[in-house]
Simulated scan of single mutants.
Amino acid sequence: MNYKYHMPTKVFSGKDCIVNNSEVFKSLGTKAMLVTGRSSAKKNGSQDDVIKALKAEGIEYVIFDQVMANPTIACSYQGSEFAKQHGVDFIITMGGGSPMDAAKAMALLAKQNIKEEDLFNGQYSQDVLPIVAVPTTAGTGSEVTQYSILTNDAVESKTSIASELIFPKVAFVDAKYMMGLPIATTVNTAVDALSHSVEGMLSIRSSVVSDALAKESIKLFVKCCPVMCEAIKQDDLSLINESTRYDLMQCAVLAGMVIAQTGTTAGHAMGYSLTYFKDIDHGRANGLVLPGYMAFVEKQKPALIAEILSVMGMTQLSEFRDLLDVLLGESEQISIADVDKYSAKAMLTGNIKANCKVAPTEQDVKSIFMERFDLA
């Protein structure tokens, strides 16, 4: 089997790993730009820990806290101008996928004059600000990927910058920052991580290395499911303890390493429109359509789906569907007109065009949507 494996991010994992490894920042420069959302990094303690570590090393910092959920291209340009104005040497980003994705684009744009129409063409010089990533949710795995996924209103969807230049240099993975996350956010981000691992195994770029990472990630997800299901049942956030949070963080990091090698497939292609047009959380959107896509793949590659289910400790796809129904609850409503629109948009993505072991047609995508949203 021919494959390439490249994961240049140095990962520090464990409680207080930022403060305990503050000397890492010294090698990156003397002035940092902190990139966050408006409040979460302050509330979960990640910003305080980063500032404490920077002060310990005598490093100056400025804060850009204007990143919204599903960050826009405009936000990335705004942040890059902020970085230029303040003459920063590197970027530290804290949060879920939104701040991390935005920060990666800012790191690129702060060093290169790239027109908006050329932002996604992959033609970049080697100059980019170093990035340090601190995930505070367990879902996107952006702390270990070369992707910056931005809301692109021109195509009414999300579009990815994909370049090894924007791999974070360092990732600090500390589960304590997740302790206050609501149940729904915890579940949605966990399902996002699961979708990365499953879709990684369904990708034409999968390898023995990526599959090994994917399987370990899937096992961690399944290990955490009884706790998440019980928390949903009792509506009790305290049931999701730090040990479970740690396992979910490791699940997400491993899944991020998977898609750094494989990319994603039809599940993400279909989920993008659910997020853009219906404001359905990204991970939840993926989870809503993933069983349907797996059922489609099963018709041509039953052994592949059986292998994935076996890692979950299941024998039937219906068991997986039932589990996600418990985790995600009742699905939102979409119309037949929505299905037509979303299916057409999904077919334009590289996720389907170039990355599926079993690629659906537009009619197949429509059928998956129709069945999932009870429109058949």
Rank of each mutant, 00 (worst) to 15 (best):
V62M: 02
E117F: 04
G287T: 09
F277T: 11
M370S: 12
K43H: 11
E332A: 13
L165D: 09
P99V: 10
S40M: 08
Y61G: 07
G263L: 05
P182G: 03
G122P: 09
D49E: 12
I166G: 14
Q333E: 06
I183A: 01
A74Y: 04
K104R: 15
G29R: 07
V222D: 03
S206V: 03
Q85H: 07
A295L: 06
D281A: 14
V144T: 11
I91F: 13
D49H: 04
F221P: 14
L248N: 07
A346M: 04
A260N: 09
S217G: 12
I59K: 02
Q85G: 12
T275E: 04
C251N: 14
S203F: 02
K169T: 09
L109Y: 00
G350R: 10
G14N: 08
L202R: 12
V311L: 04
L309Y: 11
L108D: 03
A269Q: 05
Y276E: 01
M100Y: 01
G139P: 02
M94L: 11
N21H: 09
E230V: 02
I73R: 15
C17W: 06
Q123G: 03
P168L: 01
G263I: 01
L220W: 03
A252V: 03
I92K: 00
M1K: 14
E362P: 13
G292E: 05
F373E: 01
N2V: 09
L309F: 11
I204T: 13
H196W: 04
F167M: 04
V128E: 15
N286W: 08
Y61K: 05
A107C: 13
S243G: 12
I73F: 08
D236W: 09
D192K: 15
V144L: 06
M68C: 08
K223M: 07
L54D: 07
M257A: 07
G350A: 03
D153G: 06
V144I: 05
P135W: 02
C251D: 14
T151P: 00
Y5C: 06
A162M: 07
A184K: 15
P291I: 07
T30K: 15
V358M: 02
I368K: 00
M33N: 03
S80F: 02
Y276K: 06
F90H: 01
Y293S: 12
V88E: 04
Q316K: 15
I91G: 14
A138G: 07
A105Q: 08
V128I: 13
S335A: 10
I51S: 12
I183E: 01
E156L: 08
K31M: 10
T264I: 03
A190P: 04
T264N: 07
V134A: 05
L248S: 05
L304G: 10
C229H: 05
D118N: 15
A138N: 04
T262F: 02
K10Q: 12
G287H: 10
A193M: 05
D192Q: 14
I204L: 08
A303Q: 10
S40T: 09
